[in-house]
Each structure stands twice: as C-alpha cells, then as structure tokens.
Design a protein around this nucleic acid. Sequence first.
RNA 1: GGUCCCAUCGUCUAAAGGUUAGGACACCACCCUUUCACGGUGGGAAUAUGGGUUCGAAUCCCGUUGGGAUCACCA
Length: 477
Amino acid sequence: MTVRTRFAPSPTGYMHIGNLRTALYEYLIARGDPDGKFILRIEDTDQKRYVEGATDVIYATLKQVGMLWDEGPDIGGSYGPYIQSERKSLYAEYARKLVELGGAHYCFCSKEEADEEKDEEQNMKFEDPCKRLSLEEAKKRVAAGEPYVIRQTVNKKGKSKYHDEVYGDIEIDYDELDEGVLLKSDGFPTYNFANVVDDHLMRITHVVRGNEYISSTPKYNLIYETFGWTPPRYVHVPPVMKDAQHKLSKRNGDASFQDLVAKGYLPEAIINYIALLGWNPGTEEEIFTLEELEKTFSIERLNRSPAIFDIVKLTWMNGQYIRKLGEDEFAALAKPYITKSLTRKVDIKTLCKVLQPRIETLGAIPEEISFLEHVPEYSTELYLNKKMKTDAAVAAQALDYAVAALEKTTDWNNDVLFAALKGVAEEKGMKNGQIMYPVRIALSGRETTPGGATELAVILGKDETLARLNAARQKLA
RNA sequence: GGUCCCAUCGUCUAAAGGUUAGGACACCACCCUUUCACGGUGGGAAUAUGGGUUCGAAUCCCGUUGGGAUCACCA
C-alpha cells in the first residue's frame, strides 16, 4: 500500500514551530516511500477562527522549506476538494449515516445545558438526555426545524486498545470517552469528525499529530469501526516546549517560523534543527539537508518525551549553514542587511568575507557593522592593551607611522596593506600588534570588529581610512 | 479530581540487561591569530527516588515524586 500522509493545518494565523515539525514528519514519512504522497488539507471548519491570508502563509512556508505537496487545494488531486469548508455537505451526509448505524445521535440540548449538566460535579460526564430519544422522535424534531447537533454515541464497555507507532500499545476505557459533538448546529463538522471522514476518504495511511490526541484517538477508532473502515497508522509525537512547563505557542509570543526567518535564520537550518527535536538518526551526525532527511528518517527513531526548543543551539546550527554558503550566495543573503544599515559605500566583497565566518544569524549584521557608518564615541583607554603592548603613547606613534605608509600606498588591497604595515613595524622595531591594534581601534572605535586592521582599511577605502586615522591621531594629541 | 502519557549532563540526545554512560549546543582552558570570531585540542557536567527481578539494571516490574495532556458546537 502506498504511503499517503497529510498535513492538515487550520488557517488561524502563523506557522508555528510545532506545526511545522509535524508537517516535516508527515512529509518525510511520505517521501520514505518512492510512491508516497504528501497531501495538504486545510481544516477551516471553525469560521470564528478563520484568518484572512492564513492559507497563503501555509503555502509560502512549505514552499520556502522545500516541502512540496502532491495534492492540495491549489493543485488539486483525485481526492478533493482539499478545503474542509468545501466538503461541508459530505460530512452531514456521513453524520446522518453514522446515526443510522448507531454510532451517533441527534442532540437538541443547548451548549449551556450541556455545560451545566457537566459542571455540577467535577467528575461527572455529560449524560445526554437526547440519547434516550428514539430515532423517529429525533427525526421528527429535526424535520420540525428544531436546532440540533449530532453527537457521538459511545455504548461500548471495557477497554479500547490501539497501537501507536511511537507510544506503543494504548489502552483506554470506553467510559472515559465523552460523547462529543460531531456535527455542529451550523452544519459544520468538528475536527473529531472531519478528520476521520477525510482521512478515510483521502486514503491516508499515516496520521502524525500531537500527543494530546492520544486519549481521544479511541473515539475516532470507534467511528472507523462503526463505518467498517480501517483506521490509519497513528504517529503521535510529543510537543515542542518553550520550557519544561509550557508548550511553544503563539499566545506566549513565541517565535513562529516567519519570525525566525525575519531574524535572519535560514529555512534550511530551521528545518534541520526541528527535525532533531524529537527524532535522531542514530548516528552522531546532525547536519542534514531536507534531501538527506528524506533518506534517513524513520518513524522508529521518533522520541516519546517532550523537547525544549533551544534557540541557542538553533543559532549555532544557523551559523554552520551560513558558513557552508558559497561566497556569492552569502553576499546575496547578506546584502539587504548590509545596505539596510549603511549609506556609506564600502567594499562589499571584503566585508562579506570577514562577516561570513563570524555571524550566526543574518540579523546580527547591522550591529556587527554599525561602526562602518560612523566611528562611535570611544575612550582612548581602548588603546591600552597589555597583550599587544600598546597604550595611548604607542598608539600615537603607530598612527603617525601608519598614515605615512598608507598615504603612499596606491594598490589598496589586503595583501599590500598588510605588507606595508608589517614593514613599518619591522622598520621601527615594533611588534606587529603595536601597529595593527591601534589602527584597528582608530578605524572602528571598537574593541572587537569583524576583520582586522587591514581588512577594515580595505572595506572603508583609502580616503575614509586616512580620514579616520587622522581623526584618531587628533584625539590622542 | 478521573484517565492517559513522560522522566539520561543546564538543553537536544545515544546506549533496545554487560560501555570508563557516547555525541552536540552552552560554559571553561589552551592552540591558531592584525582584534573578535571561525577552526583545532582538552576539561567540568547526567541515569529523579525507593523497592524488587537478575550473576549483572539507565535499560524489565511495582511504588513514590515531579512534569505534561485530556475531560469544548477549538483543532
């Protein structure tokens, strides 16, 4: 049987990290089968939560990370429509069928009545009086136009058992199952019903979802059973956490996929990182492209315990991806961040060369290069450095020598400049650092900089370099 | 509260009865070096707890503790 998985988000806003990871696992399971299909289905049965444009975010995100789907609302497929609101009549039809089969019943209680009944005692389940209505009676009231919902009927006793691919065998007492609403009074199905009908109709073989569904899965199995359908394989995955107590969530203001991208994280790095949040390859490798994940992924190596999202490790991994980028690729990605904070014309190529090995996110670039625009206010104490054996006096000397040497230099590139300054040090009997260090401070006003003295000089160009050197010399006078 | 799930360094994890409990991030030190990084080398750091079973337990069983989930006309 060919593997068919589905990613079924509800269009309620942004793409969350946990969601994206679920999508990734669904995608990888499908790609593990040469004929496997990854299906995108939009679960918009709750009109109250519908957010305009949210489906576009879903499409854009999946495309951005390279998780292309084989069937979906935009590209169609043999099992459409792939948007639940367009399948509305289908659910009503199946719900009525389920009633006939005894797996559900009409209920005329208002939401308030049901709530009241339940809250009387903490531990009391909702005992639906409508369950005792005869089908004829119920149909009569429906025909009379009385508002109703269709509720699941759970008559079975004993234990419900099923196998989960991650958690193993799960046993839950039928008494624990609540008789939830399957079809709402507005005619839309709830998730509890729509997911079963759609997964069956769309021939889904593997369902990946959060482990909060573990205890409601028996309800779905009951529906499959009543219809005489075969349930899919269940792959419940543990949540992605913000800390030991809280899930990562939009409500907490936790970063979404697009937030991370906006901060300069690369989609490839994000995917790589979240794949490892709850799954491991069994080897000590941890850098994987999507294609490599497609080859390596296996359900068996999925984890059962929650994983805390660690932005620090993601940041490291992002740095690894940035370093792997080709020169031009990096320049293309970095350029917007450079020009955003810089009006001065600089040598972009050299700048990128010093930037690429030391930044971990593209978003760090503006701060990293802010001194290129203006030398910040700084204390002459900066010239004091024990290891370099420099202080303000040495620096004053060094800057004089450096200006003299650099003024004569016409071929403005790193090798030439480095040789020139090194030559000065030798000639004057000074250590390299005694020249380089003061020059670097004079050019940047900062203790640490991307690139050394001569690299900064190349980036700034001859005029600006000499101007800054002279200004610093003034400051030291 | 009932039910279900989970529990190895601070974090992500490996070890599917026999390992000096391994790796990665982070941290520290050293090396490299025109600063800082990158890179390299090394270091400290964990089996929640109490009982079993077994020649032998991180691993199997039971209890305890801690955490999470669920009990919506949300998904």
